[in-house]
Design a binder for these strands. Structure first.
Length: 811
RNA sequence: GCCGAAGUGGUGGAAUGGCAGACGCGACGGACUCAAAAUCCGUUGUUGGUGACAACGUGUGGGUUCAAGUCCCACCUUCGGCACCA
């Protein structure tokens, strides 16, 4: 069969019949299947796209044949850094390259033959989409969930530009190799931390991979502890957060992060140290968080010259700056208990600070640093208390004397959404000298991204240099004002797109409550696990925020989540141009067509695992397809005669129903390789029983072949349509129901049991269904292979696993 | 470093704590053919044995269990993420 022409024939028919367009009349039977949309890169569709979209489309088609009204949209996450970098390098405008890439990818995606509803397409860099991204920003602002604060960015002093983490290699700028610095800048943030607790709790309500939920849980990083106040000699209060208030009597020193605001005051208080402190702050600015938190890294720090007063003992403890404390976590200051914390211990050793043991191991020798729970010693009236009891007592005491309180802390940080870049959605606020920050009125959206912008680095955000864009009037007072020169993080665009799809053409609003509540949550969301902590958390946050603003009624955007694996290069490494191991799907699609390539992707890999590319099996899929075609064509030549169903028919029926049952279960689990294995078994059976059955019972055989086509349809959509036509049908096979297992066909009189003696397999036996355990044991004991092994021995225990195995323990 | 995974024949991969290797690829043998291709039928974890069969076998080392690829502990290797790649 010429797959190319078959594929274009059916794609054209589907298009003409609007077969893949969601039918709103059937919305009560909706099934929203969503694949993470892609970034439009310059290259053709990647194996990864095919691997994500092909099998998921088979899942979607399967649900359609189960009677669901499937909504499977597609779009492009088209703002972002790569287009801008490409523009800086080549001079091609990001909009031009992006549009070109989208056109190519769209064409290729159409050729895949997936049932994407293209009428719902969205492109995040188009005005009609980013207008609503800006609207979303304004809603968050109104609700107090968007605010400005200073935050650190990677700054290349030579390029005079902010660098993405990706552009920083070994602390050097990837373009010019200058040392990268961390610089403070005023940026917009979304207050995702307000939702930390709910984001954590609601993980229990969604059907997501456990590992993903665990990663989010750890990312949110809830810890219960205590804030404790130390009075600094400068007159300021240093508040520390600790999960171990039980160790408070062992505090040897205080450490503040080099970015802590108190640093300035400390320099004033101890001018003799100012130079040293400044040098250290500069040094700390050159390291990233990962390095700073690494326990394997040599600890560094500097004494500020100042002391703080211990709230319980009144002792003076030195205040240090050290970069192993992050300003972004907790209060940016810790109480260091060298005896009971590994990093503090290491630091104290290095700087010859005292180490005071205040916890003793229960029953056993205490080796420092001892970080487990233990019995308090050297802790005044708290001596003898243990673990939680000690923590509670000390926290209570601290709050009584006004020196501290219990506190829940999260590792999660607020979401920084400002980007000093061109290719993104402009932030819809105006800065007025008189009125300050003024949001752009909704009726004035979109704040259009101008085309004629100098996007090469100049030391400022690219938009800052565009006067036509920057100069505006204050919506409040009418005076001259300036727009915000920054654009939004692309994660903002992708944090709400699932809401837009069902109403991509709605010009009046981002989405309507009525339709959103009907169409969402997404029933199955499919995408890579690399998004576990960021995109997937942002989307959950935005959903909750919109719910609280009354725009929607549900709390979670994605009811179920599936991660596809990653297809690696043939060498087992991640595909990359620099490694030269990129596999192009074009070659295979050109040679075999979309159906065969998709079948191979489903059959050759475990969907959620992925693995190194290898095309050994692709030919065999082509052979399989040929076999199916021959079998179908041959069946059309048979007379439709009927005869009584014999043993052969029953066996064939068994294999068919077994396949149907397993495929139905496995597709639901995205286990496509085993689904196809069962389908192959059925094809093998059809072929094996071919002559015997077909000749005397043509009607039966034809019905079996029709079921085969129905069963194959979600996996090889074009081929199945063609075969359906070959057997004389005038309608689309996707209007058919997926076959349902007839359980009666699977009932067998006897089952094979594995027989073990002392847990070793000795023989196998066919045993009738419905016997009691005792009857089964008697049959096994009487078996000619088993009986000699039991001679002169007694049975100490007998285990019967119904329908599977018998194990006799003898001695 | 921290968080999260993965490791099974020559190979891709199957196995609700219950017969390890389903279904394929490859290899080997056979049928068809002048021959080849295609197709069809067998065999195929390793070792020993003519054989029935036996022993061993799921990254490494321990453990729990009548029974462990699966559960627990420790370790090794590889992969994903670590907040401005998306």
């Amino acid at each position: 069969m010429d797959m190319k022409s078959v594929e274009s024939k059916w794609q054209a028919k589907w298009e003409k019949n609007k077969q893949n367009v969601f039918n709103k009349k059937n919305a009560d039977k909706k099934w929203y299947v969503l694949e993470m949309f892609s970034y439009p890169s310059a290259a053709n569709l990647h194996v990864g796209h095919w691997y994500n979209y092909g099998p998921t489309d088979s899942y979607a088609r399967f649900k359609k044949m189960q009677g669901y009204e499937v909504f499977q949209p597609m779009g492009f996450d088209s703002f972002g850094l790569p287009a801008e970098n490409y523009a800086i390098k080549t001079g091609v405008h990001p909009q031009d390259s992006t549009e070109k890439n989208i056109a190519t990818m769209e064409r290729q995606l159409r050729n895949m033959g997936a049932m994407f509803d293209w009428s719902a397409e969205i492109i995040t860099s188009h005005e009609d989409y980013y207008k609503w991204t800006q609207w979303l920003f304004l809603q968050l602002y109104k609700k107090g969930l968007a605010y400005r604060k200073e935050a650190l960015v990677n700054w290349c002093p030579s390029c005079e530009t902010v660098l993405a983490n990706e552009q920083v290699i070994d602390n050097k700028c990837e373009r010019c190799s200058s040392q990268v610095l961390r610089k403070d800048m005023t940026q917009w943030f979304f207050k995702i931390t307000d939702y930390a607790e709910e984001l954590l709790d609601d993980l229990d309500t969604i059907d997501w991979p456990e590992k993903t939920k665990l990663m989010q849980k750890n990312w949110i990083g809830k810890s219960t502890g205590c804030e404790i106040n130390f009075e600094c000699e400068t007159g300021d209060t240093i508040t520390v957060f600790t999960t171990r208030p039980d160790t408070v009597f062992g505090v040897n020193y205080i450490v503040i992060a080099p970015e802590h605001p108190l640093v300035e005051k400390l320099k004033e208080a101890h001018p003799e140290k100012a130079e040293e402190i400044e040098a250290y702050v500069l040094y700390a600015a050159s390291a990233n968080d990962i390095d700073r938190l690494s326990t394997g890294r040599e600890k560094t720090g500097v004494f500020s010259g100042a002391y703080a007063t211990h709230p319980l003992t009144g002792k003076q403890v030195p205040v240090y700056l050290a970069d192993y404390v992050l300003y972004s976590y907790g209060t940016g200051a810790v109480m260091a208990v060298a005896a009971h914390d590994e990093r503090d211990f290491e630091f104290a050793k290095k700087y010859n600070l005292p180490i005071t043991q205040v916890i003793q191991k229960q029953g056993g020798e205490t080796v420092l640093p001892f970080t487990e729970d233990g019995i308090l010693v050297n802790s005044g009236s708290f001596d003898g208390l243990f673990g939680d009891e000690a923590r509670d007592a000390i926290a209570l005491h601290l709050s009584k004397i006004g020196k501290g309180c219990k506190k829940v802390n999260y590792r999660l940080r607020d979401w920084s959404v400002s980007r000093q870049r061109y290719w993104g959605a402009p932030i819809p606020v105006v800065h007025c000298e008189k009125c300050g920050v003024v949001p752009v009125p909704e009726k004035d959206l979109p704040v259009k991204l101008p085309y004629d912008v100098e996007f090469r680095p100049t030391g400022k955000s690219p938009l800052a240099g565009h006067e036509g864009f920057m100069n505006c009037t204050c919506p409040k007072c009418g005076a001259n004002a300036k727009r915000d020169p920054d654009t939004l993080d692309t994660f903002v665009c992708s944090s709400w797109y699932y809401l837009r799809y069902p109403e991509s053409n709605n010009e009046k609003q981002a989405f309507s409550k009525e339709i959103a509540d009907k169409m969402l949550p997404v029933d199955v969301y499919v995408g890579g696990s690399e998004h576990a902590c960021m995109h997937l958390l942002y989307a959950r946050f935005i959903t909750k925020a919109l719910r609280d603003m009354g725009y929607i009624s549900f709390s979670e955007p994605f009811k179920r989540l599936v991660h596809q694996g990653i297809i690696l290069g043939p060498d087992g490494n991640r595909m990359s141009k620099s490694r030269g191991n990129v596999v192009s799907p074009d070659k295979y699609v050109g040679e075999y067509g979309s159906d065969i390539f998709r079948l191979y992707l489903m059959f050759g890999f475990s969907y959620t695992e992925g693995g190194p590319w290898n095309d050994d099996g692709i030919k065999s899929i082509a052979k399989f397809v040929d076999r199916v075609e021959r079998l179908v064509r041959k069946s059309t030549e048979l007379p439709a005669n009927k005869a009584e169903l014999g043993k052969a028919e029953k066996e064939l029926d068994y294999v068919k129903n077994y396949a149907v049952k397993n495929i139905t279960r496995d597709v639901e689990m995205f286990s496509f390789n085993t689904s196809l294995a069962r389908l192959m078994e059925y094809v093998n059976a059809l072929q094996k029983y071919d002559n015997e059955v077909a000749e005397k019972n043509g009607a039966f055989y034809k019905a079996c072949v029709e079921d085969l086509i129905r069963m194959l349809a979600p996996f090889a959509p074009h081929l199945s349509e063609e075969l359906w036509e070959i057997v004389g049908k005038k309608t689309s096979v996707f209007e058919e129901d997926y076959p349902v297992c007839n359980e009666a066909a699977l009932v067998k009189a006897e089952t094979e049991y594995a027989v073990q003696v002392n847990s070793k397999i000795k023989t196998k036996m066919m045993i009738a269904e419905g016997l009691s355990d005792e009857e089964v044991i008697e049959l096994v004991k009487a078996n000619s292979d088993v009986a000699p092994l039991l001679e002169g021995k007694s049975i100490k225990k007998a285990i019967v696993v119904k329908g599977r195995l018998v194990n006799l323990i003898v001695g």
